[in-house]
Design a binder for these strands. Structure first.
Lengths: 350, 350
DNA sequence: TTGAAAGCGCTAACAG
DNA sequence: CTGTTAGCGCTTTCAA
């Protein structure tokens, strides 16, 4: 059995109360006593039980983090920043991977609820009602997701998001200026809030410029989805309706697009321009260097950590985005090289 | 305040003892009573406090996982498998990122020690003594690391590792058979146990074939390190001592090597062959497709989870490895042609 | 089959 | 400044 505070107290010849005070750095202890207690504690290799402490104080010193896919670099960066910021405050992290499944997310939330002081829900797939309901058990930080305006935001809910609008709008304008006429967007998972934001921004920006937009969905926003989607796009097109540019939900998806193009012998950016989102790739990973939208998962992690550390009631912060132009986007390929120039009507599913 | 078992008991008209029994599925409760308690509990939205339960049972239902870099896909896969396996048994996970730092690792261990039932140390950078010492506080599963034979292995320590020897040996023989004469190995972090294994396997295999081996180190085993190391290798060599093949600590490093070669106009595998380790890349990510050593982080995660679930005293399991030949390794380039300033086409006759 | 009571290890009044 | 006392929410003897 591990050493308890009672043994420390006994060995130091003081009461448990005094031992507790000495150990927890209360100033209501004379220095000599404190030193004695501390020395004894060290000698006995005493580690206070956070469990017992939590039970009485009602504070656990832990926060729970639930995310859709711990294998996705976006969440991994987010988590790294969160962990290091909170770790510096001696706060521990309970982690749960919901695997994009809202039921599993709820189960995890339940399991964590009695052993954490708060919860960070990254890209939650739960309904607004479920989330609002959960705030009655715990303070919650919603990351990369916002409640639809309608529902009243409870006091114990913070929201930190990435405002993708400027970035995606700039991307569309950038492509338009380069003469692109048909752009396809490869979206993220169906229930993704940020996917909705991106679709919305793109739809608006394209409409403003009179550019047709095609949207295709994926289940998981990774390399494989991007590659598969791009293969379908390329295979399913004759020259006429093949997009001149592909925008992706994130850099991983864009990487998949680049791979599919390479495999199909399609030059990027010669024939098709490609852009990603997150600016998450180290220099040189993508070839050609990927035009992307700078949206830092790390920054989001920091904001989430601050919301946890500083729960000033409801709050809502957002990370700005901007376009980073690199080598994967260029002047549009001349349609004449394709078979025909007659524009086709494109369906749009948003 | 959340509902307590006392309130449930009161509302159901039974004692807390009975309520507890009903809730925890003890058979010493008449069915009618159980149903009543359960109904009341549901009505009150009761969630049992794991904290309180832990305090009395001495079991937390959590395990801690400490790893060197949560941003590294290897650990991320490992963690995903671990989380999902343990999650299925309703076991929670406390996570800690040591950032390759053994002091931080020890701090995390301390912090977790009173709120977990066991600890998984992935690629621990702590000393054997520290690890052995820690087993007195907790059952420990060492993943991707073994104690040096000397120290007696305590009963509460399990070790699950990847046996890289077959894979790296096969890689060396493969290169030798292709006529390679100078191979350079780009290693992982200084204190890495698996790095030591790899160096050892390579050194032996090369010695057996009379092939010289150069080893260069990195701090963090990622894309950037691989790229930088490869740049140095290429820049620092004139044609004569430039390696004909580069082996890497893992696929991320190998990816960096590929990028550096591409940037320098060096053809892979025409001029230099490259191989990674882990077989962690989705098909199409690397170009050319990467020859690698199949060593599954997921499998390691599963073994670690089993060691936690089934603590049959000391145990030691290992995952086997084998070479997966793809397109990044080929017949060695003839030194005489190396000095040409123009990159050579891929094909080569033999 | 149920209930009363004794803690798990710790902190937080309240006295002294 | 220090000690005594009462729990935090739960499980688990031990009796009934």
């Amino acid at each position: 059995m591990a050493t308890t505070i009672r043994q420390v107290a006994a060995a130091a010849g003081v009461s448990v109360a005094t031992a507790s005070r000495a150990l927890s750095g209360s100033d209501a202890v004379i220095e000599a006593t404190r030193q004695r207690v501390l020395a004894v504690a060290r000698g006995l290799d005493y580690t206070p039980s956070r469990l017992a402490r939590s039970l009485v104080t009602g504070l656990t010193g832990n926060v729970g983090v639930i995310l859709p896919d711990i294998t996705n670099p976006f969440y991994t960066s987010f988590l790294a920043e969160l962990e290091s910021t909170l770790g510096a405050h001696d706060i521990g992290i309970l982690i749960g991977d919901s695997q994009e499944d809202s039921d599993r997310e709820y189960t995890l939330l339940q399991r964590m609820s009695t052993q954490v002081d708060g919860l960070v829900l990254a890209s939650s797939r739960m309904s607004d009602d479920q989330i609002v309901g959960a705030t009655s058990k715990l303070p919650i930080v919603l990351a990369n997701r916002m409640l639809r305006g309608a529902s009243p935001v409870p006091g114990r809910l913070s929201q930190v998001v990435i405002d993708v609008d400027p970035g995606y709008t700039a991307a569309v304008r950038h492509l338009h200026a380069l003469g692109h006429t048909r752009v396809t967007y490869i979206d993220g998972p169906p229930r993704s809030w940020s996917g909705l934001q991106k679709r919305t921004a793109l739809t608006r920006a394209c409409a403003e410029l009179g550019m047709p937009l095609t949207i295709v969905g994926t289940d998981r926003p990774g390399f494989g989805s991007g590659r598969d989607a791009a293969e379908r796009i390329v295979d399913g097109s004759d020259g006429d309706d093949c997009p001149t540019a592909i925008l992706a939900f994130n850099d991983q998806v864009a990487l998949g697009v680049l791979a599919a193009c390479r495999a199909a012998g399609i030059d990027v950016p010669g024939h098709i321009s490609v852009a990603g989102c997150d600016d998450s790739l180290p220099d040189g990973l993508a070839w050609p260097a990927l035009t992307t939208i700078d949206s830092s998962a790390r920054t989001l992690g920091r904001l989430a950590a601050q919301a946890i550390l500083n729960p000033t009631g409801e709050r809502s912060e957002s990370v700005q985005t901007r376009l980073v132009v690199r080598d994967s986007t260029a002047r549009a390929h001349q349609p004449s090289t394709f078979h025909s120039t007659v524009p086709q009507p494109l369906q749009e599913s948003s």
